[in-house]
Amino acid sequence: MDDLTTLRDAWDRPAPPSAAAHAAARAALLERASARGTAPVARRRLRLPRMGVRLAAVGALAVTIAAGVTVVQNLGGTDKNGHPRPVVPGLPGGSVADAQTVLYKAAERAQGRAFTPPRPGQWSYTETRYTSPGNPEIGAVQTPQSPLKTRVDRLWIRSDGRKIAFYRNGRFTISQPITSQTGSMPPDGYAASAALPRDPDALLALVAKKVPHATEAERQDNTFDILGGLLNKNAVLPPQLEATVYRALAKIPDVTLNREAVDVEGRPALAVSRVIEGWLRQEILLDRKTYALLGERSIAVKDHTGKGDDGSWAIKKGTIGVLSVRLAAGIVDKPGQRP
């Protein structure tokens, strides 16, 4: 059985993104794999922005239904003069300044952690929970009250990036990722990731060469998405590289600190964010105390109507696009093992 057939069998939900979504999110490993193999459907879905599509596609390999999510509003609040309080005590009140401070603190934390690189032939393991209403159907309207579906993905990637492994309906599958030979961003496997530049400007320049864009804003959107994907895709990164990613994120224009808190596994998270296409806020979620990565979220910040060849769909302000929560990560000796 070839790779495409394996992945075709693996995707039984959700229905596939549109061709436009495939192109916009092509840097993501499992989105590519899932988008190439899918069961036939009666009608095509319409385009969702990049992070929502990327994470929803990763969820196509999911095997477990779990609990939903809670959003905690207005953590910072305002002071006696009506000005917003900083989300992190001791940080300046400006949202951009807050985001840069948080990202530099995350970089310091990453750079100081203990680290043992994987040996050749070892595998990275990530266990991630995805919660989402799914891709909207033609004519549908998604709201904050739309039901959410939750799935847990367990994924192994060999350190050279040439093999992936996952479970579906109790069946363990090892396959070659479609992106293993393409030089995709973020790259597949530890070896390719570890070869990335340790200088933030050099990393940003490399990402800029890899992403399609028509405008400067789209380039920055793609860059934010790919750097977030690099953090979430890899179970481990060299400490200096992880620190470089956070410092590179701090250089992207219009990256701010969301003044709402996201409750992740009972922990209020810091949300470093960028608004995509004027209506969807993409967030990288960090632990408030340790600045460790917790996951990602996308949420509509204004009403939006999406249009495509087959029709249109609508999403209302406050609707969650997708929430991913990292449950476990580490290095193992063979696929199927857990750290």
Rank of each mutant, 00 (worst) to 15 (best):
Q240A: 14
A33N: 15
G134P: 01
A39E: 12
T5M: 04
S184W: 01
L257F: 01
Y190W: 12
D303E: 07
K289E: 15
G134S: 06
Q100C: 05
D199K: 05
A300D: 08
T256C: 01
K316F: 04
T128C: 03
G93L: 02
R47K: 12
I157C: 03
L75P: 00
M51E: 12
H22R: 11
A67Y: 04
H22S: 12
A20H: 03
G112N: 13
K251Y: 07
A195H: 02
R198F: 03
D188N: 12
E265P: 00
G308F: 01
P239I: 10
Q73P: 04
V325H: 06
G189C: 05
S175T: 14
P268M: 10
V53L: 13
R129L: 03
A217K: 08
P268I: 06
D12H: 10
K302M: 10
L257Q: 09
P239M: 12
G134I: 03
A214Q: 14
R162P: 03
G170L: 08
T173R: 11
A24L: 06
N74S: 14
F166W: 07
A23M: 07
A194Q: 03
I226P: 00
G76T: 10
K210V: 08
K210W: 05
G306C: 05
Q142K: 08
G321A: 10
I284W: 02
D310F: 02
R26T: 13
Q282V: 09
S132K: 02
G121V: 06
V332H: 02
S298C: 06
P14V: 00
T319H: 05
G336T: 06
R47N: 14
I320T: 13
A314N: 11
L327I: 08
W279V: 09
A205E: 13
G183C: 02
P144K: 07
Q122E: 15
Y246T: 07
V332N: 03
A42H: 00
Y190L: 05
R259L: 15
D310Y: 02
G77R: 04
A250T: 01
T319K: 05
I315H: 05
L30M: 12
D160N: 09
L206Q: 13
Y104W: 12
R119D: 14
D263I: 03
N234Q: 14
A20C: 01
V211P: 00
F224Y: 09
K289V: 10
V53P: 00
R151P: 01
E242M: 06
T116P: 00
A97R: 13
L103G: 09
Y246G: 06
S159M: 10
A27G: 12
T290S: 11
A235Y: 05
A292C: 01
Y130A: 08
G90R: 05
L257D: 08
R32T: 14
P186W: 06
